[in-house]
Design a protein around this nucleic acid. Structure first.
Length: 551
DNA sequence: GCCGTTTTCGGCCCGACTGTTTTCAGTCG
């Protein structure tokens, strides 16, 4: 079965090939725009095609619709195959080199006669680029380094899972805040939109001393390469192979820059087109009428200047949100600040986090009033809960209280009843299996459908039964920060929400500092346009306090 | 190639940085 990702890749390839062949840029852009749209579609193309609604996808017209249909029905695309015959396969690879776009790649091919990275490397070493117009010493050195990095697989060109990117970004922010005079430092880009994968990091800072900020930035540990440096913007490559952009701005422009660098690109193009129609101009410094800046300090200002209600970052994909904002009908998304609990954390056996105190402190910092420790439902469960219970803090500080709850985790129906002290059950779906029967006696504990993480994408994809399970038994579904391992990406969340499923966000922590990862889980829920009414904020009240002890 | 309550033709977002240039093209986001 053809997946959206396959069609997406095909359109990207067509875009590249047309670009290399010197086709007009708007045609090239049309294929790339369509590819981006497909990436964030959230619904299988085959379903849309079956409804006859392909042309309703923004950026898909007659020609692209016909190509999608051809591929869906035959698994091939004649147009692509013809294009491939015109360009050697290695030429596309050349475009992955930093500083090499379609024009330069084409010159390598036509003028130098190389057909891929290996041949280019040989040509560089043989000095065949010397004296060629447009290739000075620095350009050649840049190529040499780029080729070496390409061979070593550290080109920073690949996307990584949202959570990994988030953790890198958090660490960067901490370091920069400690070492540079910044008044504000935020992450924009696809990370702020909570995209499931993130290519590079976009940092924005407000500072009165940009030079000092850039100096700190260029001295970050783990820096592999400085890709550009200027007065307002610098780009580096960090050791994990991730590219990081930093822009330093004045407060007057911060909202406009945040809006602009959060994207998505297609969302921004839409806004700018709208602005032109209103006689305005939008750039990263503000919204302008003639020379006068009419907005820019905050994002809300920018949207308001265009006659739009504020649009949450997570849904800025040009999938109709701009039209909705113009009509004042932006969906109200779940807010992290309303969350009062995290019911899925595991205490390690040793170390500082084996005790509840550090967890409680972090939880209070996040504004929680409740925290749920989960143990495996086995013969030791009651004993583990009993050991922790006396240390459970009930208050911290003068007013805030934190209630620590205990739950058990099990796969489907357990032969063991819940142990003494357990207040809820986290059910794990089994891999590839059908959902077990889960009779629900009236007095039973609240139950949630936890997620099972799998490294293997096939195992994730093969786990089909649990959706039916959640629907059949009306079980709230846990949403964690690793969609690539659970299969619960924003598209799935959106369709589950539409079918009435409720959600329980968790950080799935095994260390107390990981509680902060709830930001990622909530981001995914928001990207799935999940509203506050569909999220469980804490354990339902009325939980039976006394359980019959097992014997 | 897409798109349209000013258009079915003629537009298509906007700016920073780089390298190699004497005023700019290419790349990138």
């Amino acid at each position: 079965m053809a997946s959206n990702a396959e069609v997406e890749r095909i359109f990207v390839e067509i875009g590249d090939l047309l670009d290399l062949l010197g086709e007009q840029r708007f045609k090239v852009e049309a294929y790339r725009r369509a590819a981006r749209t497909l990436e964030s579609l959230g619904e299988p193309l085959e379903r849309i095609a079956a409804r006859g609604e392909l042309e309703r996808i923004p950026g898909i017209g007659d020609a692209l619709e016909a190509k999608i249909r051809e591929y869906l029905s035959t698994g091939r695309l004649e147009y692509l195959e013809k294009l491939r015959q015109q360009v050697p396969p290695g030429i596309r690879e050349l475009m992955r080199l930093p500083g090499v776009g379609p024009k330069t790649a084409r010159r390598f091919w036509v003028e130098i006669g190389v057909e891929g990275p290996l041949e280019l490397a040989q040509a560089v070493e043989a000095g065949r680029l010397r004296g060629v117009a447009g290739f000075g010493e620095r350009k050649i050195e840049q190529l040499r380094q780029g080729l070496a990095a390409l061979g070593a697989g550290v080109d920073g060109g690949s996307r990584r899972p949202l959570l990994d990117a988030w953790e890198i970004a958090e660490e960067l922010r901490e370091r920069l805040r400690a070492s540079a005079p910044v008044d504000e430092l935020v992450v924009a880009g696809s990370l702020r939109r909570s995209r499931e994968t993130v290519g590079d990091l976009d940092l924005l800072a407000i500072s009165r001393e940009p030079a000092k900020v850039f100096a700190s930035f260029l001295a970050l540990p783990g820096l592999i390469e400085v890709r550009s440096k200027g007065d307002t913007k610098s780009t580096i490559l960090l050791a994990p192979g991730i590219q990081v952009d930093l822009r330093v701005l004045e407060p007057e422009s911060f909202g406009a820059a945040l809006q602009y660098f959060t994207g998505s690109k297609d969302h921004n193009v839409h806004l700018r087109t709208l602005a032109r129609e209103k006689g305005l101009k939008v750039n990263e410094y503000g919204v302008f009428r003639e020379e006068e800046r009419v907005a820019g300090r905050t994002e809300e200002e920018v949207y308001a200047a265009l006659g739009l209600a504020p649009i949450p970052p997570e849904i800025r994909e040009n999938h109709g949100e701009v039209e909705a904002a113009a009509a004042g009908q932006v969906p109200t998304l779940f807010e992290r600040s309303s969350l009062r609990t995290d019911l899925h954390l595991h205490l390690p056996l040793q170390g500082e986090d084996a005790a509840l105190a550090p967890w409680a402190e972090r939880a209070l910092g996040l504004g929680y009033s409740e925290l749920g420790v989960v143990v495996e439902n086995d013969d030791e469960a009651a004993e583990r809960i009993r050991r922790l219970r006396p240390t459970a803090p009930t208050t911290a500080g003068a007013k805030t209280t934190l209630r620590v709850r205990f739950g058990v985790e099990q796969e489907g129906a357990s032969p063991l009843p819940p142990p003494e002290g357990a207040e809820y059950i986290l059910l794990r779906p089994s891999v590839g299996g059908t959902p077990p029967k889960t009779e629900a006696p009236a007095e039973s504990l609240p139950r949630f459908l936890g997620h099972l993480e799998a490294e293997d994408p096939a195992a994730v994809a093969g786990r089909v039964g649990w959706v039916e399970w959640a629907l059949r038994d009306r079980l709230p579904v846990e949403v964690g920060p690793r969609p690539e391992r659970t299969g619960l990406d924003s598209g799935s969340l959106r369709s589950l929400a539409a079918r009435g499923v409720r959600f329980l966000p968790s950080a799935r922590s095994e260390r107390s500092r990981e509680l902060a990862r709830i930001a990622v889980s909530v981001g995914l829920l928001r990207r799935g346009a999940v509203s506050a009414t569909q999220v469980l904020l804490g354990l339902p009240e009325g939980t039976p306090k006394k359980r019959r002890a097992r014997t």
